[in-house]
Design a protein around this nucleic acid. Structure first.
Lengths: 355, 355
DNA sequence: TCTTGTTTTGCAAACGTTTGCAGAGAAAAG
DNA sequence: CTTTTCTCTGCAAACGTTTGCAAAACAAGA
């Protein structure tokens, strides 16, 4: 009849003080074991569940963290969300999720709105200007993922070493001209990958051509495929797997064979096994990053902001089916217009007659 | 140096009562406009943000809803989460996200744990037994998506009409034998699609063979591709796009051409444009479903449970590149083992005996 | 038996809001 | 100049916990 049972009701029912009931849950070692058992039995029977809000009000601990991502529909984020949520759950924390829709203003508003009601915030791939980020980090408990602003708490998925390996590998396969197809221009990861390609291409004397898929969607990348193929490169490194995938879609439609005509390397390992051929890519430990961020928020809960830290997880190159030796110079790549149906071309290795 | 300012502090500072400050935010029409302005200015200056927990405790309104999904990494869910979050945000609600990992026990625990701290729960594709669901629905405010238990509030994405269209279309293309490749067996959507295929195949005198990809992953489906191809069907309807995609991966590896050798129709339209060829599928309005569920929770907030309702959004068939005329009987499908792709080995010719 | 020390429990005050009720003015009506 | 009616504001009690402090119960040492 009444709503949910409260601690006070339980206490009355048992003839003990509310504080006793409370302690039975939060500090059972202060109570006689039999009292604890008694209370727990009654709680169980009555279907008692503690009221989070009351507890938060009393203790000052929210029991929840906020997680802010630019676009949950981008396959990079769900595994991260999942890992964060799982780990938070282990720590007894719930997670608020919010999606900024890649919009900096929305992100800013969301941060202000969520911050006061949570233990801390995880902001992934922030689109906010550095100055604002620093300001936020000063007054809120927030851990950033994939955004590198000095003196904030940030965990970074660094792919530069793996990109170096990728370039070495391509070089060993005989490639001399490679493309980098970038993603969202404001993204830290994009800038970082962009310059990694630039820097390490030098050591192998590779010539690199830059493209940018903006927005970083499958379709945008697909639309770019022809230009990339026509640019004369023999290998492409994509900002992420969805762009790599889009490019492959475009290549297939244009009759460009991967990896015979063109090698492709993705990044993030989000889709890699679902492409055909399976995508060579750079695997990145999003789970570790998410857990580290959650842990940072749960540690020393009193403080009003997190102390600066820069935590790096390195990606690793994983070679699958989309990288191969550069095609002989004798048979230069030409784009073949599609005949009856694009499926006939490109997608099926081993079926093509011109190899 | 003190933490966040409170209503009481603001009140003291302004020489008014806390209740006045409170009303300035929640019932400004009760106050003299100049008082409201005064308070707002001071609040702004002090950086006051209301304490959600205190408010929740006082009003009994949590200002948040919970969203429970089986696996956020499955591409069906992110768009749903996104829509729910956006709409909730418009209504001034935050959203808690939780992932059950396809585990009924975990789901049950999560529901009990979240329910008391939110305005209501949205449970998507519940894996719980009907009896338990009914029980939960009795005592909690919960809207189910894609789970059809009588007398609960449920919104369903019904694909049966679209499946009928799909079968009609296949029939018109000359197909006589089709396969249904199912997904998670406990899933309502799977049962619903399964029987839709069964029912409507009769009207076109189609022979249907059933397969099941369990778990409903890309890899599981890919592993099934050979059996499906060998079963003698000329078209396949997949439980969802990821299974369709997995099958296509398997087919490609085995040298089976889509749509020449085999037509494929997916479901949910989550990946459709990212496959090659672009996947014919059944589009489904997840956004509408999510919004309806959120709206249901925000309506008449007092009640302890939602009144039963059954809301249906119908899917629509969208034809892209993976459906085509059945191949002429003169050139029956034979699997060509491929040399460089191990997946092609071990292909069974001969029909699968399935009922 | 009387201290003394340890467990175990209860009391009551917080935590930051909201809100029913009532008081204080001011305006309107007589 | 009263009386009545409004408009605006304050008081204080709730909401369900937690927790410092003190009382009570019990055990052990003298």
């Amino acid at each position: 009849m009444t709503g949910r049972p409260t601690i006070t009701q339980l206490a009355a029912e048992l003839g003990v003080a509310p504080s006793t009931v409370s302690r039975a849950f939060t500090r059972p070692n202060l109570l006689k074991p039999e009292t604890v058992a008694l209370v727990q039995k009654a709680a169980e029977a009555a279907g008692y569940v503690p009221n989070h809000h009351a507890r938060a009000l009393s203790t000052g601990r929210a029991g929840a963290i906020g997680l802010i991502v630019p676009d949950i529909a981008n396959p990079f984020f769900p595994p991260l969300v999942r890992a964060a949520q799982n780990y938070a759950s282990d720590l007894g924390l719930s997670v608020f999720l919010a999606d900024t829709d890649e919009d900096a203003n929305r992100e800013d508003r969301l941060i202000s709105r969520m911050a006061p009601q949570v233990e801390g915030l995880i902001v992934v791939s922030s689109r906010l200007p550095s100055a604002r980020i620093r300001q936020i980090a000063d007054s809120q408990r927030v851990a950033f993922i994939n955004r590198d602003v000095a003196e904030t708490y940030r965990v970074l998925l660094d792919t530069s070493a793996a990109i170096r390996s990728a370039l070495t590998h391509l070089s060993e396969l005989g490639h001399r001209r490679v493309a980098y197809v970038g993603g969202p221009p404001q993204s830290w990861a994009n800038k970082q990958r962009h310059s990694a390609v630039d820097n390490f291409s030098k050591v192998h004397a590779l010539e690199v051509t830059h493209f940018s898929a903006d927005p970083g969607t499958y379709d945008a990348a697909k639309a770019l495929a022809d230009s990339v193929a026509a640019s004369g490169v023999t290998a492409v490194i994509a900002f992420d797997d969805v762009i790599a995938h889009g490019l492959m879609g475009g290549f297939a439609a244009a009759g460009v064979d991967v990896p015979k005509d063109l090698s492709v390397i993705g990044c993030d390992d989000t889709l890699a096994t679902t492409t055909f051929p399976a995508l060579s890519t750079i695997a990145v430990n999003v789970g570790a990053a998410a857990r580290r961020a959650v842990a940072a928020l749960s540690e020393n809960p009193g403080s009003t902001s997190l102390t600066g830290a820069r935590i790096i997880f390195e990606g690793t190159l994983v070679l699958r089916g989309t990288t191969g030796a550069v095609r002989p110079a004798s048979s230069p790549l030409t784009l073949e217009p599609e005949l009856d149906h694009p499926a006939a071309r490109g997608v099926q290795t081993g079926r093509r007659s011109d190899s």
